[in-house]
Design a protein around this nucleic acid. Structure first.
Lengths: 207, 207
DNA sequence: TTGACAATTTTCCAATCAGGATCATTATGT
DNA sequence: ACATAATGATCCTGATTGGAAAATTGTCAA
């Protein structure tokens, strides 16, 4: 049944969690370590919880954060099948760092499983690049122009010509630099997981 | 990045989100609607946020709750820990269908989250192509050579030139055909792997 | 049905903290 | 020196926690 207008508050969610498990406020209080009075107030929307309490709740009650915040429940949210986004480099969201020049594609599409990024590489040596980069997830890099040298934590450096690609575990330290004899190189990268890029350490380390 | 003992506070998380996107506090403030002073305090762990602010943040910044709370998400954990695979078109696993000529890259790497495929397109019209294709997951297609016409279930056809890409929900019917005036087209596709059943459905539909 | 009586829930209150505005200070880069 | 970014220091209103006291609800025997 359609998710009728009722905007699910934290109180609603908490109450449903509690009754679903047949707990009294006292029991829930014991399990969560949050006083009965507070729980009561939350359930009546006279109060919400702050970060620490939410975390405490999620941990002690063994529930996921996404359960506390009303996110699409496959029961209530009619899965909109059919989204798409066209990505061109000049419509891309551009982010510049010392080593890279990122062009995030299709940023209008949220919550995607993969992040496509066109990247211009500037560094010409591992030394110039600096520390290897690590982040969550996996990535696939495909060379569009020039030639790229892939440095990783556990392998010897390897060169990729235009038209070649590499797939790697992003949590393994890695760095892409322009190969000998080239000024620049352009690659298409696709990163798995968490929306909106995972290039955190890139930016913080080399921004 | 190894999940070293560092206790992931809200401040830590927020800071990494911010630097990952290359935002200043001011920019992040504008995007999120939360004052700079508050953001600064949060990042320095002199403050946390309460339910409504967290929700506001997650909505305005288009990030998921699970990103705000650093919970190891199996969604983001690499399945190919510390591994890599180089993919060239001539080492690819080739699969031929009526409409496409697939070159599966990096097939030596199992259990990956994404499947990179170089595809040569032969069909020149939706009619010639036949029924639209549907399968689980999402895909990003990038045009390497020629020009491609993207037909989908819910959108008008659109043409992609070399260097352009499209990201779409694969469960929406789709078909790629060569655009007018071109003999063939070559695209790089990356499919989110829901895992490996993909190859089967592709092959059964067009084999 | 009524009157204990206990369990559960809600209200009340005090201490603390979140949230925001403003000004001062310290880099950093132009 | 100048603009921008980041941080710190106040100050203030309103929200949050949590303990304890009231109110509600449920149970059961007479």
């Amino acid at each position: 049944m359609a998710d009728r207008g009722a905007p699910p508050t934290l109180g609603t969610v908490m109450k449903s969690i509690r009754s679903r498990n047949g707990w009294t406020l006292k029991e829930m209080s014991a399990k969560s370590g949050i006083p009965v009075s507070t729980l009561s107030k939350v359930e009546h929307d006279r109060l919400t919880l702050s970060y620490d309490k939410l975390q405490q709740l999620s941990q002690r009650l063994n529930i996921r954060m996404s359960d506390l915040f009303a996110e699409d429940d496959e029961d209530t949210a009619p899965r909109v099948t059919g989204r798409r986004s066209i990505g061109t480099i000049d419509q891309a969201v551009r982010v510049t760092t010392d080593n890279y020049d990122y062009h995030y594609l299709c940023t209008d599409l949220r919550q995607k499983r993969m992040i496509p990024i066109i990247t211009r590489i500037r560094a010409h040596s591992a030394r110039e690049f600096g520390d290897l980069v690590r982040h969550q997830g996996e990535e696939f890099i495909f060379v569009l122009e020039g030639e790229v040298e892939i440095h990783t934590e556990f392998y010897d450096p390897v060169a990729l010509k235009t038209g070649q690609g590499i797939y790697l575990d992003s949590s393994m330290g890695h760095a892409y630099v322009v190969a000998e004899g080239y000024e620049e190189a352009l690659v298409l990268g696709v990163c798995s997981s968490a929306d909106d890029g995972l290039m955190d350490s890139l930016m913080s380390l080399h921004g």
